[in-house]
């Protein structure tokens, strides 16, 4: 290729090359966006599955058992999502990951939201950065791609919204009544932890507001439960029994 192009033909020749390069880029972009959308949809379904499983367990079995059944179902499905990420590996090799990060990001965050919800139900803790990165690595522990810090944090931030849903429905769940309080304390901790990081992530700042609202809703649930129990001053187990019997009548 000559260094200075002085004829129309030579110009068209190099633009021919640019076209291929741009097409290649756009095609990959399209593939990754589609893939990210699939990841989003699957992850959303996992979250729904968890809520559904928790609802199904209503009163039939022990709270812990219900949670673990939900978690194991979720993990099953999350494997499918992880396989999608494994499939992206080649597409985002080398310097390509950061070129396409924005295209992958929505799916990645939704995945982290689902994964961290399952993790919370299993361990009652916030999943760590390294655990998430590990879930996105092959058997040898080699990551499919680096986990961006902001995707990790933004995914966790969305978790608080799901925990709010969990807390609200816990009011109609046997033994789940004490859950609301647990979740309340946990989400309060999340909000505090995130607060220190907001100066560095603009989007997190916006999501913090949603987190604060979710927290208030959870506090209201804990309050509603506390107020009602206080009136009778009976152990929660006994209260649960009474309600269950009435409904079953």
């Amino acid at each position: 290729m000559s260094v200075v192009l002085s004829s129309r033909d030579s110009i068209l020749e190099v633009f021919d090359h640019f076209r291929d390069e741009l097409d290649d880029f756009h095609d990959r972009r399209e593939r990754l966006i589609k893939c990210s959308r699939d990841v989003t949809n699957l992850s959303k379904k996992v979250i729904f599955l968890i809520h559904r499983s928790l609802t199904e367990g209503l009163g039939q079995s022990d709270e812990r058992e219900t949670s673990l059944r939900a978690v194991s179902r979720a993990k099953e499905k999350l494997k499918d999502v992880q396989n999608l990420f494994a499939g992206m590996r080649e597409e985002v090799a080398g310097d390509r990951f950061w070129r396409h990060q924005r295209n992958v990001s929505p799916g990645l965050q939704e995945y982290i939201e689902a994964l961290s919800l399952a993790h919370y139900l299993e361990c009652q803790t916030l999943i760590s950065y390294e655990e998430v990165q590990k879930s996105l690595s092959d058997a040898d522990g080699t990551p499919y791609f680096p986990l961006p810090l902001d995707d990790y944090l933004l995914g966790l931030s969305d978790l608080t919204g799901e925990l709010m849903r969990y807390a609200i429905s816990s009011i109609s769940r046997r033994g789940g009544r004490s859950k609301a309080n647990e979740v309340c304390i946990f989400v309060r901790g999340c909000r505090a932890d995130f607060e220190g990081l907001t100066p560095h992530f603009r989007e997190l700042r916006k999501k913090q507001q949603v987190t604060s609202q979710s927290l208030e809703k959870i506090e209201d649930v804990a309050y509603a439960i506390a107020v009602r129990s206080s009136e009778y001053d009976l152990p929660p187990e006994l209260l649960d029994d009474i309600v269950e019997r009435t409904v079953a009548e």
Binding site: S7, R8, I11, L12, V14, F15, D16, F18, R19, L22, D23, H26
Partner: peptide
């Protein structure tokens, strides 16, 4: 015009 012909070949989004 030569340059424009080049650009016209690209599939710009």
């Amino acid at each position: 015009k030569d340059l424009f012909a080049g650009f016209a070949m690209l599939n710009l989004k």
